[in-house]
Nucleic acid binder design. Sequence first.
DNA 1: GCCAGTATTATTGTATACAATACGATGACT
DNA 2: AGTCATCGTATTGTATACAATAATACTGGC
Lengths: 222, 222
Amino acid sequence: MLDKGPKDQSVSLVSRLSSWIAQPEQVHGVSITENELAAIFGVSRTPLREALNFASAIGLIRRQRSRSIEIPPLSGADMFQLSRTREELEGLITFQVSERIAAGEVSIDGLEKLNQRMSALATIGDTGVLLGAGLDFHEYMRENSGNEVAAGLLQQLMLRLERYRQCIRALDDRSGHIVHEHGQIIDAIRAGDSAGAARAAREHVANARESYRAQLAKHGLF
Amino acid sequence: MLDKGPKDQSVSLVSRLSSWIAQPEQVHGVSITENELAAIFGVSRTPLREALNFASAIGLIRRQRSRSIEIPPLSGADMFQLSRTREELEGLITFQVSERIAAGEVSIDGLEKLNQRMSALATIGDTGVLLGAGLDFHEYMRENSGNEVAAGLLQQLMLRLERYRQCIRALDDRSGHIVHEHGQIIDAIRAGDSAGAARAAREHVANARESYRAQLAKHGLF
DNA sequence: GCCAGTATTATTGTATACAATACGATGACT
DNA sequence: AGTCATCGTATTGTATACAATAATACTGGC
């Protein structure tokens, strides 16, 4: 209980909470009491409840009134809707990034640099690092779209998708595809084809979704 | 999510807070202290902070760490991004509603009924009621899309757009267009043209956005 | 007069205490 | 034995109190 150095916990509590939820060993669909969670994180109920409110606002957990916290069960349908929605938003911000680059409001250098880094990592073959670089790519798109609204919503989706990502991180080997598909997006942007870039981004998400679905089905996860 | 519980304040606090923020007389971009807000709503800081966390999670307010609450300023750019993002999500769920109707998973009766009601109201000419019915239409789409994810994100956007809606409610007379555009969406769904329905939905949002932009510009609001 | 450094105050972050509510168990009655 | 009412306990919702941090005012030195 004596968590020394108790500066602002609420911000980090949200990320700690989301990490905790994302752990595959958590039994999904089960209810947990606030006191239990508070004990787990070593804080009192007050900051915990603030984190819970935040988490429930973005759909990470569910809270009926006067009921305990429920970790939403993982399901293929849920994963599909998350990814399908992400597809639209990634398409939108990719389009907007492309437009901004075409208009000279943003330099393409950042994307080129990320692309080179990805290619370099692909030859090395470190899957973990490569996947991290892949996330950097999408983060860069969010930050340079000029659309904070869509970027914020996308980040919510990424947090929720993280739970599924955890399940298949070890299994997935789409790294080669990822590099290629990111490359296609950048190519379209470079050519000034914003609509094409958006299309490529959407296909990229759709491909990832299909890969996830296949992996999860193959291992009979849900 | 409406005010119902006599005791549970935290849920209703969120809606009360969003209504309060949406009031045009609020000076946007100004900072407010938690104690002031707590006094305004007649509650202690604890439930207020929970509502604030919820509101900041969905972008209704901004809270830097250890700083007072900031009501994000209204701006044309913000309105554009909200509406532009909404356009994508409305397109998506309209597509999904259409697909579910085509597959027989959902009856089209609900939409037909809403359409008839809208037409009837249009002849009467009560703008306020008609706009409410328009919102019902979109709510129906969200609830019958089978995509809780996109529906939840859309609801966040609608809450944030409410602030802009408040500014021009009295000015707007797009009622006729709304009825017509909703009709086009329904027609496409009835014809089994999901892609067409999605396109119509997106155009509907884009038209509303342009109308908003023009109205706000005409009155020099921001 | 102005700037730096410190003291003071205001405001946020956290913990504890209490109240209200929902859930479960126990027992009475049919 | 089954069902319903009532009570007891567990859990959430709210308020108050305290701690830590950021903002502000003040004083002394230059």
